[in-house]
């Protein structure tokens, strides 16, 4: 598929960083505000799909391979399961939140009945892992479908 007009490309180039920052914000604040790994990942994947629509799939295909996306998705899944098994090793139960109430990263104790960005234990880390997985997975689906259906039209 050829790219669209210059206007669409410019608007997409302006909008893509904003959408990505917003999606990463939703992922990073998943334990504080509405949202989380899945929702933020869907937002970032939508921004990538906007790029793919505006610039054409061949342009995106020259930048990123679907093989790399599969590897990123597997990395996210491995991080998620690895955190769950770390809970089994260090906290005594599968998916136990072993980081909470410690002095490590994300381990601070919530004061005044409300959490902050550095609390939450393993929840922010799992949000990041799942967000990476959803970004790579959804964009891989969109990209593979777009490439395969465009090959037929040519």
């Amino acid at each position: 598929m050829k790219g669209m007009s210059t206007i669409v490309k410019t608007i997409a180039n302006i909008g893509f960083p904003i959408i990505t920052i917003y999606g990463l914000y939703v992922i990073a604040h998943g334990h504080l505000t509405p949202g989380g790994g899945f929702q933020g990942g869907a937002i970032v994947a939508s921004g990538l799909a906007l790029l793919a629509v505006a610039h054409g799939t061949s342009w995106v295909e020259s930048k990123v391979k679907e093989h790399d996306l599969s590897m990123l998705e597997s990395l996210g899944a491995l991080g998620f399961i690895g955190l769950a098994f770390l809970g089994l090793l260090m906290g005594g139960a599968f998916f136990s939140n072993f980081l909470v109430d410690t002095s490590m990263l994300f381990g601070a104790i919530p004061v005044d009945g409300a959490a902050n960005i550095n609390t939450g234990g393993t929840l922010p880390l799992m949000n990041f892992a799942v967000g990476l997985k959803v970004i790579a997975g959804l964009f891989a689906i969109v990209l593979v479908m777009a490439i395969a259906t465009n090959k037929e039209e040519d």
């Binding site: 505000t33 509405p34 005044d112 009945g113 409300a114 959490a115």
Partner: peptide, 8 residues
């Protein structure tokens, strides 16, 4: 309201 604590 939605199950999200705001602290105040």
């Amino acid at each position: 309201v939605a199950p999200i604590f705001t602290g105040n």
